[in-house]
Computed example of a mutant assay.
Amino acid sequence: MTFDPAALDDVLSSLSVRTGPARRSVLGAGGLHPLVPGHVTLIYVVEGEISADPRDTLACDLDVEAGTASRVDGSRTLLAGDAIVSAGHQPSVLHSESGARIVTVQMDLDWPRAALPLPSLVLVGGFAALEPAAAALAAELGTCPVDEEGVRLGDSIICRTMVTAVLLAVIRAWAHSTCAPHGWPRRAQDPFLERVAAAVIDEPGHEWTVDTLASLGAMSRSVFAERFRSEFGQSPASFVTGVRMARAKTMLGAGHSVSETSRELGYTSDEGFSRAFRRHTGTAPSQWRARHRDEVAS
């Protein structure tokens, strides 16, 4: 497939990654490791072997050594130096026949343009050969101290940066594969639409309507709506909501109250904001904020 390298840079740089703690797990022979839905999960095989059985889920299998990429049909075994990203669309279970040491990190991704079109699972066989620097980082994840006495200033930031680097390397491998949607990623071909998108991202709390957005894009309402949906894969209203929800997660994660976040994002009431947030995330903003606080403290 062909894609715009500059657009890939845009996608990778625009991703906001909020990570939970990196955990090192040892699976005995016949051991199982569940992948819970609702979070993106990064898995790196440090030693041994694990198998994934996507069943009816959409999964992409990249084999670096063979230079192939295909949809997964049946169980797939990964060895030391291989990586997996689960998009968290539904529950899944990894298992090991002979035992394994793995690193896992749960995370939330914020990308205001549109949902990152990752399949349910991305399996990268030979990740260490393809991305040796990222693999070296992955192998060290989970070694950050978790007790207060062992924590040094900046540990959480450094660990988050390491996780982000590994995740972006996996996404880059997937973007180069034939599993990624044709033409992904690409920039908007229309500079007027780019101007509209940038304005929404810069001021998500503005009272954006289709009419005001169409005017900003120098188009009629009907032409603008059609071209926007064709370019971004969603309606202008859905795009605005997605940007607001991404900003809401950032604000709530930074400690802002639900009321502060609601006002900043242009909602006339906390109730209206809470309904929109629940529809978008499946969780009330107060619960999401509390969960984030607990994950940071753990």
Rank of each mutant, 00 (worst) to 15 (best):
D63H: 13
T261Q: 10
V11M: 13
V196F: 03
S238V: 06
L109E: 02
F228Q: 04
E260D: 06
A173L: 09
G48C: 03
E203D: 11
S259F: 09
T19G: 03
V64R: 14
V72A: 08
W174A: 01
R289E: 05
E260A: 09
A246S: 15
G88W: 07
A135W: 14
T2K: 13
P34G: 07
I50K: 04
D190A: 14
D190Y: 15
A7F: 00
M219S: 07
L35H: 10
Q234E: 15
A29R: 12
C60T: 11
H292E: 14
L8D: 03
S156Y: 06
K249M: 15
V146E: 04
D155T: 03
A135G: 10
G154Q: 01
A246F: 08
R275K: 11
L116N: 06
G266D: 05
L62T: 12
A254I: 05
L168M: 04
A290E: 13
A225K: 13
V103R: 00
L168H: 09
V85E: 06
V240E: 05
V223Y: 11
L265P: 00
A165F: 08
S25H: 15
A114Y: 14
E149F: 13
P119S: 07
A165K: 07
L27T: 03
V40H: 06
H95A: 14
W288Y: 13
V200Q: 00
R186D: 06
A197Y: 03
A214S: 10
L252A: 01
R227I: 00
D155P: 00
T2C: 10
R76G: 05
L193T: 00
R187T: 10
A165H: 09
W174N: 01
V296A: 05
P34Q: 08
G38F: 08
R152P: 03
V258A: 07
G20I: 01
E226T: 15
T77L: 08
E140H: 15
Q90F: 12
E271C: 02
D155Q: 01
G233P: 03
D190I: 14
R71A: 15
R160C: 05
A6W: 11
S257I: 05
T77Q: 11
A100C: 09
A254R: 01
A134M: 06
S298V: 11
A80T: 08
P5Y: 00
D9V: 14
H256T: 04
R244N: 01
C144H: 00
M162D: 07
D53Q: 07
S177A: 09
T212H: 10
G154H: 05
F232G: 00
T57I: 10
A114K: 11
